[in-house]
Amino acid sequence: MAAKARTLRRLLGEYRELINNETEGIYAGPISEEDWMVWECLIAGPPDTPFEGGMFSATLTFTDDYPLSPPTLKFTCDILHPNVYPDGTVCISILHPPGDDPNMYEHASERWSPIQSVEKVLLSVMSMLAEPNDESGANVDASKMFRENRERYEKIVRNCARKTVGL
């Protein structure tokens, strides 16, 4: 229980920080006051990408081990991206525990450690949207399409983005 109290205190601190120092394009908070271990997030599609204009919703799920272990992030809207599994789960190195790094070659500062935060995760996801890593195997079809048929990929992505804002 003690470990959980620490996790809750940390999450409360992060939430307070996100509200007080709002970062553009990122919104996150617990779904309900009852359960601090599941958060709802909105990530704005980065400008000058096919994701622009979309507001992509996702859930962040924390474990009792947080922040020793990273949370998991899963998109709850339709999205096509090489680093997002078809079920919406995001696969980037900041979300993987050490030793389980899917893309060892990714930028060093993006690994998970207890000094990372929800804000850092969401910012990493934002840059992942802008710059897919097509060598990741999370969504092979998307990777292939991104490499071989960029036009079609971008069209589908733009559709997804429009759908997220109800167009």
């Binding site: 020793l68 050490p98 060093a108 500062s109 207890p114």
Partner: peptide, 17 residues
């Protein structure tokens, strides 16, 4: 062999390494 940046983020900071 790597940079301090890379070393601290991959070998020092993560829990369980």
């Amino acid at each position: 062999e790597t940079s301090i940046e890379d070393y601290r983020s991959s070998q020092i900071e993560p829990y369980g390494v």
